[in-house]
Amino acid sequence: MSDSSRSAAVGGSFPPTRHSLLADLRADEPDVRARALDALARLYWRPVYKHLRRRLGLSTHDAEDTTQAFFAHALTADVFESYDPRQARFRTFFRVCLDRFAANEYRAAGRQKRGGHIQHVPIDVEGAERELERAGVVAVSDPDAEFHREWVRSLFGLSVESLEAWGRETGRQVHFSLFERYDLDEAPGDRPTYQALSDEFGIPVTQVTNYLAAARREFRRIVLARLREVTTTDAEFRAEARDLLGVDVQ
């Protein structure tokens, strides 16, 4: 399912029912498990890789190796079998599993992976390294908060990609460009005014307002759809959505 069709299917922001990621990860059918893990990996590989580099101090090669090995291990072993939604959020459990794997099982899993040359997750190591370089040296005092921050960065990054695709596929490139200028501008300081955007894009201010509103609406739908995809229960989905949109990530 494409991102745009998925977001369209979401409709309102908080759908009343949802499939269970947890059930899919625990499914007997290998295809179902692989699809669920693929959804997880797309969102989690960056936080995992950066966590291994920053928190555990692994080299580039070892971090890549361990990231691949962890997802391969998750696909074949019952890693998520013991997850209880009442105990913790899934991403917290996920990070604990990663730490445990990195500490205790890396050697065995690594040997297995290197022997089989299996690569389940497409990892852009160079891109991730550039991101680490841009972020600079970060003191990791709270690994869970840091993992969460990277998780949010990954979630929003993928959602922006989807929004760009939505603009391209539906002929709304101007919508995305306005969103990019107003909501995605990396430069600190004041944002451009709607009047400035109106002059820059050659459209009336009212159209700037409407296009931005439409792009933001779509972005919100995409974010929530992705969130829905990688949470295990409705309660967790709502809690993550509340944290994501209502609490400072710092």
Binding site: R134, S159, V160, E186, R220, L245
Partner: peptide
């Protein structure tokens, strides 16, 4: 995937919070 600074994350968070006024008589300014 593009890299997003912490500043951009905050702005995106605000954007995601923008109210969905479709079907209402209001436009958010």
């Amino acid at each position: 995937m593009r890299w997003l600074s912490d500043n951009a994350l905050e702005r995106l968070r605000e954007a995601a919070e923008w109210p969905d006024l479709a079907g209402t008589r209001y436009e958010a300014i």
